[in-house]
Amino acid sequence: MRFVIDGMTIEAQAGDTILTACRRAGYYIPHLCFHGDLPAQGNCRLCLVESKGRLLPSCLTKVTDGMEVASATEQLHTLRLRLTQMLFVEGNHICPSCEASGNCMLQALGYRLGLLDNHYPQFFPRRPLDASHPQMILDFNRCIQCQLCVRASDQLDQKHAFVVAGRGGEAHITASSSNGQLGSTSFAATDHAAGICPVGVFLGKGVGYVTPIGERRYDRADIAQAGDRNA
């Protein structure tokens, strides 16, 4: 099966989504809430591509033979830029003080898209830190609600350590225990959920800022070359 994206022909296997086929072929489509080990859910909307005038999440849309898809259009560039800016203003992303800076997929996406400002007014929400776990701190200020940790803990770790609570602007991810604290779950720092965060919510205790500035993953190369931090 073959399809065409941005004028390039890509081979796809039966059941492939546009995104998985492109990833296998080494063609980069921006994404944040997708991870190869988990079923896609399509909530970040960064991987939207255009086909027959409609925008489709490439992580959910199955390839059909001969389909034509556009990803590298100016319109989609602007749309992705705005979505990235939305994620920046929604949380508290103070890159200069963030341990994940240089290794953050949100930031890397900003670099790739040439994002120079946040465009929108910032929300500056008040979000809690969860330092209850012996090995890990959760800093929800950086959370972009991709729900990868929730899904990884459910499906890869079988621990159900995280849930989404609240609705709309109040929606947030929290530890699944009765007191809402990570320390009261069976989560371990070696879990898949611990390493799957595309940004900097999960911080190991006792280590930090190990890689010098200039040598971090996305200092060295664009995310399309350097790959996903959580891969």
Partner: peptide, 19 residues
């Protein structure tokens, strides 16, 4: 022109913003 992280996003001083 807004120059630097603080002018662009509020930056480190904006850590106070939700208090």
């Amino acid at each position: 022109c807004a120059v630097g992280a603080c002018a662009v996003t509020g930056g480190i001083p904006a850590l106070r913003n939700n208090i």
